[in-house]
Amino acid sequence: MKPTDVLPLRPWAVARLAVLLAGGAGALVTGVTLLFTRDDHGPAGAALGIGALALGAAFATVAKHLLGPPDDEEERHAPGSPACQGCDPETRPQTRRRLVVGGSAVAVLGAVGGGALLRGRTDARRELRETSWRRGDAVVTDDGRPVQAGDLAPGSFLTVFPDHAIGAADSQAVLLRVDTRRLGNRPRFEELAPDGHVAYSKLCTHMGCPVGLFQQDPDVLVCPCHQAVFDVLDGARPVQGPADRPLPQLPLVIDDDGTLRAGGGFTGPVGPGWWGRPR
């Protein structure tokens, strides 16, 4: 250590140090006490924070006023500096070779390990493709109540599930009642949507968020995440925003006692796309 590394003791610096140390310790003790005596965390945390800051200031005082300035000097012993001959691993050929060999080994191990982890998960594609909806499933709300034809006033909207899979994320659908007079001449639509009851997958085809907003005039479903807009009267075709695929439709039928039932599964895979998604 150089003689200049420690400055002469200056009384005011020592006094400041003493105040900071005492204050910091006091604040920490207060903080711990408050933490164990009060139910709100604010005052306790504030006291603990102030205590740590005061102790930090004490160390800074030591560094600034009791120790020397940052003017110590030493020779640089690093790759590329004059004091270091032949100690540069970045350019030593055997090190480079070792790096290449090691890197390749890690890459091969990673590929093998990753492949092993991915194997046996081939059911992923089937599960992404399928939902719980089967022909004849009763359409129920999230509390299990079957939906009757006519329950819904035109212009209203419900989130529905198949009766045997309430809450299943991939099977959630929006059930809407639209005014049949506004449908015009859309025979296929009418076939899937008896008496103006129409259901679409609630999973946005953009990012998979639930398409939770229904607006009228024009009748559109809007996804709150990225504002994809789907035309309810035209097979949920995307008309604005980032989605590039319609929401799959759920064919509906009304049985003899007026209960809404699925006429089959969705007209296509639900949610965002993936490599190999069937058309």
Binding site: G42, G45, L48, G49, G51, A54, G56, A57, A63
Partner: peptide, 19 residues
Amino acid sequence: VKTTALLLVVAGVLTLLGA
């Protein structure tokens, strides 16, 4: 000494923010 000061200041500021 300097880096201990910084450690305590970081911990103190984060505790104050959290509180």
